[in-house]
């Protein structure tokens, strides 16, 4: 089981990933995810699917419409739309 982390540790890990060139529209912070599958089930464009580690992964990132439905419904604040709105 993954170690619990504080919000500071989460922020540092996510910023680290961004610095290393993370370029997908949605970010999943896996240590907080409890694999409830709500985000996968209610994504209107089927962007997400469950990976082998029982955490959501972006199977079709190009289809994402940034509707934030995954972010609004995640009970653990583990998934969010990280890309700014299209310019």
């Amino acid at each position: 089981m993954a170690k619990n982390t504080t919000v500071e540790e989460a922020r540092a890990a996510i910023e680290q990933d961004f610095k290393q060139g993370y370029d997908l529209p949605v970010y999943v912070y896996k240590p907080w995810c409890k694999s409830c599958e709500i985000c996968v089930a209610f994504c209107p464009k089927q962007v997400l699917e469950m990976g082998e580690d029982r955490k959501p992964r972006l199977a079709r990132p190009r289809d994402c419409i940034r509707c934030r439905q995954c972010e609004l419904r995640c009970p653990d604040l583990a998934i969010f739309v990280c890309e700014e709105k299209a310019k």
């Binding site: 504080t6 907080w32 409890k34 409830c36 599958e37 995640c74 009970p75 653990d76 583990a78």
Partner: peptide, 13 residues
């Protein structure tokens, strides 16, 4: 974190 609630509990939402 994560919080104490069970997976899929609505309270987090």
């Amino acid at each position: 974190f994560p919080n104490v609630w069970c997976p899929g509990c609505g309270h987090g939402i």
